[in-house]
Design a protein around this nucleic acid. Sequence first.
DNA 1: CGCCGGTTTGACATACTTCAAGAGAAGTGG
DNA 2: CCACTTCTCTTGAAGTATGTCAAACCGGCG
Lengths: 240, 240
Amino acid sequence: MDLELSKRPKCSECPIRHRAVCARCDDDELLTLEAIKSYKSFKAGEPILWRGDELVYLASIVEGVATLNKSMEDGRTQMVGLLLPSDFIGRPGRNDIEFDVVAATDVTLCCFQRKPFERLLETTPHISQRLVEMTMDELDAARDWMVLLGRKTAQEKTATFVEMLVRRQRVDGVDTDPQHLALPLTRDEIANYLGLTLETVSRQLNAMKKDGVLRFADRRRFEVADFKALRNATGDGAEY
Amino acid sequence: MDLELSKRPKCSECPIRHRAVCARCDDDELLTLEAIKSYKSFKAGEPILWRGDELVYLASIVEGVATLNKSMEDGRTQMVGLLLPSDFIGRPGRNDIEFDVVAATDVTLCCFQRKPFERLLETTPHISQRLVEMTMDELDAARDWMVLLGRKTAQEKTATFVEMLVRRQRVDGVDTDPQHLALPLTRDEIANYLGLTLETVSRQLNAMKKDGVLRFADRRRFEVADFKALRNATGDGAEY
DNA sequence: CGCCGGTTTGACATACTTCAAGAGAAGTGG
DNA sequence: CCACTTCTCTTGAAGTATGTCAAACCGGCG
């Protein structure tokens, strides 16, 4: 794994300070974390971790989007995780993971050496509690995702994906102008997320464009022209 | 929810003592747990919890099989969890859950009142650590399940399900005679597990019977006639 | 015995995949 | 700055796995 280390910005100024695994830490605890952290960057498309790699670091995503992918022997692949800023990579107590982690866009990670971090977990309830909470949130998300994979139509899958993106980018980033949303994944990656082929994804996106639900600036950038119709197409019923 | 309370058997004689959320507890800690626990039983088919119900109890499965199910507005349903003995029900820190829990067979639960249990979590690392570990195991399982739902064929799905059952029942129960395995679910429930229809499941099971992979005593009880062929049909490649 | 839920089996429909060709962007090197 | 390659995406035509609908079967139970 290519490591490009850089300096350690102050935790207090960190954009994910209040959502990441460190969210509940007080100032003292942040100092302890700063001692074992380092930043690493990856270009879009670069692998971050291969399945079975020894886990030297655990990390939070500071910027960018990463995907967790599982593949079958014959090459079929299924995405099983989509990590946005503040999400956590790695499993304390294991020294490897069961999927590949890939940078979908340029990614900045805040990495903690595993061993010291695991010791911190034992002594710092603020960190371990937050980690449990995040893990359970991920499990909830995985269960919604299972409904999508097992029971939704291609149209519903695609609409659900777009709607999820819109919601998460809205909450996440700077309160982005609704005009300026971007798909962080290629058609092929979206297909791996949804359990479809890239052709089907392409057809579904273009259908939503034709129906006036989405409006595309180019292949990546788009805006939602009719949010209600989008929501309707997800198969999840009325809002909330 | 119908509650049929019964006495509290000694933890020390509990069949799931070493695998459940209490696995790491010492004798003192077990005593504290015994103070807040009670047993409840459910008949096959009975609901244990409805989505949105207030979570009064958290529980471990002592005996039997329960399923977690999500449903869409129009009635499509997808199973998102299959709980066997020692598995845990409920999410500390939340007062409801996002899916239905149903007894697939007769079920015995070891229930803990939520509030006292949550207090125990804060003071007893042996419990919280074990809970984290179990949650992460469930997340790993959910990810394998996502590959199944998104990418496997009906034949692979069915074979994977049967193979998983064989493995878990072997590890779990009394080391059951390979002659005597039973599907704990109906065809319809299996279909909900696999993201298929019951007709397709029926056809796949009968195909495996015709091919000499499985041998059925009745609709539920079966034995694996050719384990290698079964494993092969899962799409997961050679053993381990 | 006769109902009843779970299951099997068949015929048909279709949503999605597969295969194939080509169009745009985007990068690369001369 | 323009060919040239390369990658992503679109679009069409054809194939197929799985769903849908419907009827019959079977074992258990009142």
